[in-house]
């Protein structure tokens, strides 16, 4: 059974722009799914719809097992600049009324999991871009969500930081097996991370094809330089090119 089923979902914004046109997508429990598409294809909108941050104009989003706890990681770290790293990670627990003692312990643990033990008392401005993103991930994971939605979280980071965060994210996923939906416009990132890629086209935004990435985990740097990886990237690039050609035909 699926964790969430997106069925023919459309989204038209108040200004008349159609971000999604009957997009459908099934997301299985515990899987790592990437949503790949050119910019402006409604990937972010799809994620916000799944999170319930905005209602669909048409279609439904079904939760066969009930809507689980979910975490959201934005493209920017989106931290509160006045609060320490610990207080930022504590936030979801605080808003749920968890007692201070417990939430401090859990937040410190979550920071430890993303490799930021010792930075509890730092303010966001004292941290590097990659570290801020780690805080953001720790905050999304602190409630122990079943579903983690990520909206191009590493797009603004440099290549080296990005690779390390990709590896660390996979490690976290293998350890706790949350369901991950990772939006990206990078073919390489989507192939490296996910079990399955949903390729989207733009104008109108819809899920055009799906592609399985059968490579086993753990995926390391070695996988990233293998011939298998290169072949899969070529395949995914082809699908993305098809998606973009559809867009040209529509326009």
């Amino acid at each position: 059974m699926h964790l969430v089923a997106v069925r023919g979902v459309s989204k038209v914004f108040a200004n008349g722009i159609q971000a999604l046109d009957s997009a459908s997508l099934d997301i299985g429990q515990g899987e790592f799914l990437s949503v790949l598409g050119p910019s402006g294809c409604g990937k972010s909108t799809l994620l916000r719809l799944i999170a319930g941050l905005t209602p669909p104009s048409a279609g439904t989003i079904e939760w066969p097992k009930g809507k689980p706890d979910l975490g959201f990681v934005f493209q920017e770290p989106t931290l509160m600049p006045w609060a320490t790293a610990l207080a930022n990670v504590e936030l979801p627990l605080k808003l749920r009324g968890v007692a201070r003692h417990e939430r401090e312990a859990r937040a410190a643990e979550a920071l430890g999991h993303v490799g930021l033990a010792g930075f509890e008392r730092s303010h966001p401005r004292e941290l590097s871009g990659g570290m801020k993103m780690r805080v953001s991930i720790a905050r999304a994971l602190v409630t122990g969500p079943k579903l983690l939605l990520m909206d191009e979280p590493f797009a603004a980071l440099d290549e080296i930081t990005r690779r390390r965060l990709n590896t660390d994210l996979l490690e976290l996923w293998q350890r706790t097996r949350f369901t991950a939906v990772f939006v990206t416009h990078s073919v390489f990132e989507s192939v490296f991370l996910s079990q399955r890629i949903a390729v989207m086209s733009a104008r109108p935004g819809r899920v055009l094809s799906e592609l399985a990435i059968p490579a086993p985990y753990p995926r390391t740097e070695a996988f990233g330089t293998s011939a298998d990886y290169a072949a899969l990237c070529r395949l995914a690039s082809g699908r993305l090119a098809e998606a973009m050609a559809t867009e040209g035909a529509a326009a």
């Binding site: 916000r48 999170a51 319930g52 941050l53 934005f74 989106t78 509160m80 936030l91 749920r96």
Partner: peptide
């Protein structure tokens, strides 16, 4: 206020 932070607060039911 950062719109994404507002979305985050909404997500956690504040």
């Amino acid at each position: 206020v950062d719109h994404n932070l507002l979305a985050l607060f909404e997500l956690y039911g504040a």
